[in-house]
Design a binder for these strands. Sequence first.
DNA 1: TTGTATGCGTTATCAC
DNA 2: GTGATAACGCATACAA
Lengths: 368, 368
Amino acid sequence: MQKKLTIQDIARLAGVSKATASRVLNGNPSVNGELRARVMRVVEEHDFVPNATAVSLAGGNTHLIGVLAPPLVWPALPEIIRGVAEYIEDSAYEIVLYSINFANAECNHSEVVKRILNLHLVSGLLAIFTDELLPQITRLAQDGLPIVLIDDQEEPGHIPWVGIDNRESARTAIRYLLELGHKRIAHIRGPQYYYWANERYRGYCQALQEAGIAPEPELLLQGGFEPLHGRQCAEQLFARERASWPSAIFVANDQMAYGVLEYVEQQGIRVPEDVTIVGFDDNLLSAYTRPPLTTVHQPFSEMGRRATELLLNMIDPQYLAGPKASQQVQASTEFLQLSERDQPVHLQLPTSMVIRASSTQASLSVKT
Amino acid sequence: MQKKLTIQDIARLAGVSKATASRVLNGNPSVNGELRARVMRVVEEHDFVPNATAVSLAGGNTHLIGVLAPPLVWPALPEIIRGVAEYIEDSAYEIVLYSINFANAECNHSEVVKRILNLHLVSGLLAIFTDELLPQITRLAQDGLPIVLIDDQEEPGHIPWVGIDNRESARTAIRYLLELGHKRIAHIRGPQYYYWANERYRGYCQALQEAGIAPEPELLLQGGFEPLHGRQCAEQLFARERASWPSAIFVANDQMAYGVLEYVEQQGIRVPEDVTIVGFDDNLLSAYTRPPLTTVHQPFSEMGRRATELLLNMIDPQYLAGPKASQQVQASTEFLQLSERDQPVHLQLPTSMVIRASSTQASLSVKT
DNA sequence: TTGTATGCGTTATCAC
DNA sequence: GTGATAACGCATACAA
C-alpha cells in the first residue's frame, strides 16, 4: 500500500510546525490567515486526510458508531439502516455493523456485547431489536456508552429511545375500520409478553369500547410474528360457521397478515368483499401482496435518521455537520429539553394509515 | 464513560512489564508458562481487552473491513451481508458499512471512495455492485488496498472476484425448459451493456442451438432490472396472436419476472398451464410469488462468506481464525494457487435450479 | 526469556 | 499566533 503522507509531511511542505498544521485542519481560528492559506494549499494539493486511527487515539473519539441488529433479512432493517446511512453520510462518522443472529443458538451473543464495550472501538451504539441482549445493553449504557434504542419489545426505559405510539396507531386503525362500517373486528395479536403487541392490543380494545362495542373474546387470537402464525389464526377464525365470521381482521403485524391473505385466498374467501384485512408495519412487500395490504406505516428510515441524530448529539453535543447545522441545533435543543427535565429521551414518530385494496378499492393516506 | 484499564495496568497487577503483557495477549510462544498464567489470570479477572484504536495505530492493521454497497433494500444485499457477517463474527475483524445511494444524484459518490482511501480506516474493502464507481475502486486496488469484488456488471478483471457462471447457469435453465418439452422459449434479457445480462443471453442462445433450435428474434425482448420492465415485455409478447405466443419465458432476473407474473395473471393467462416462467437470482421473495417462481439460485450468502474469507487472507495471509482454521488454510491455498500462477483470482460458485410451481407442480432441485 | 525504549500519527498543553 | 513536547495505548526492535 502506497505510503501515506502524515501531518508531519504537510507541515514540512508548508514550512510550519505540525501543531499549526493540525490547527488549520481542525479549523482553529487562532491561526494567521497567510499561514492557513499556505497549509490549505498543500493539503488540497495532496488530497491529504488525517489518519483516522491516530485521530481516534489522540482525540478520544473514534468517530465510529456501532449498529447492533439482527440479520438484515428482517423486513424493517434495510429501511432503518438506510436512514442511518443517509444521516451518517454527511457526518464525520462511520458505521460499524454488528449483525447478530439470534437464531444461532451455538454462539454466545453476550460475547458480542463484551467486544463492543471492551474494544472501545465505537463511540456510541445504535441498538435495534435487541431481543435477549437488552440487560447487557443497559449495563453498557450505565457504564456511560452513549446508546439509542430502536426496539419496542419492552416498554421504553431510561435509555434514549426512538419509536412510535403503538397504542394510538392501533386505535387509529380500528377507528378506520369502524368508519368503514365494520362491527365484527377480529384481532390477531402479537406475542404475549411483547410491549408492542400489548400496546396494539390495548389500542384495539380502546377503540372498540369508545364505539360502544365490547371486545368479543372469540374474535381475539393469540398469534406470533410469522406468516405461519397468521395463517393458523385465520384457520381458526374461518373454521366456525359463516355467521360468526369477522367482517374485518386487524393483524398485529404485516408478516402475519401475509399468512392470513394466503389462507383466505386458498379458501376462496374474497378480500375485501368477504373480509377486510389490516396489518401493521408497512413492510416493503405489503404494497405487492394480493391484494395489496392496508396497514399502519411505520417510518422506519426516519426512525433510523432521528436515532442517529440523537446518538451523534449524545456523543458530541458540540458536533454540527455542515449541511445539517440547523437540524442538528434543533435536535440538540430537543434532546436537551428532555434531558434537562430529567426525563428519559423518548422520541415518538408519527405513523400513518396506508389504505390499499385489502380494505377498499380507493387509495388514500390518513395521518395519525 | 468508565475509565478503562490499559495494558500498563495489567502489567503492573501481574508484576511484569507491558512488553510481556503484550506478548501474552498476542500468544507469543516465547513467554514463560508461569508468567503467562499470571498475566492471563489478571486479564480474565478484569475482562481486559486491548484498546482497538491503539492496536491499530501500533500494529498497522485496523482489523476493519469496509463493505461498499448500494442501499440494503436491494434484494440480494441482506443475504450477501449475512454471509459476510457470519464469517466476520468469529474473526478478529469488524465491518464498516459504506452504504451508497446511487439514486441520489445530488452527492458526489467519489467523495465516499476518497474517504475510504485517505482515512486509512479500513484494511480491506469488499465492493458489492459498484455501479459507476468501478474505475475508482480499481485505482484503490492499484494503490495496494486489498479489495474483493462481488459484481458482475462488467467482466471480471484483475481485482479478485467472487461470483457465478452466468452463461452456464442460463444454459442449464434453458436445458431444463427443453427437457420439459418447450420449443418456443422467449427471453427477456437484462440491460444492454451489462456483463451478466449478456452472459445469460449467450447461455440462452447456446442451449437453443445445441438443441437445434434457431433463436427467434421475435422471442427476444430487451428488458432492464425492474418489475415494470418485465411487465412491459410481457405485454409485447402476448399482444400478438395466440399462435405466436411462447410456451415458456426465461426472464433475466427475478425482479422482472415478478412483473411478468403480475401481468399474465391480470390477463387470465395461466402459469404454468399456458406459459411457463423461469427467473434468475432466487431472491427471498421468489418463493412467495403467485405461483412461486422457478429460478436459478445464486448462493448470495455463500458469496459473502467466501469473499470475506478471500479478503481476510489478502489482508493477512498469516491470519487463521480458531474455529475456521482448516477452511482458512484451504482458502489460503486456493488463493495462493491462483495468484501464484499470476492469474487473477476469480471464484465461481455453483448455482442451482430451484423448481417451483411456475414451471411445474413437482418440486425438485437440480445442481448446475 | 524478559525488560527498556522507541515509534505509530494525531491532538492538546505548555511555554514563547 | 506559533512551535516544541507530552500524552493516547499498544507493538516491537533491541538490549540485557
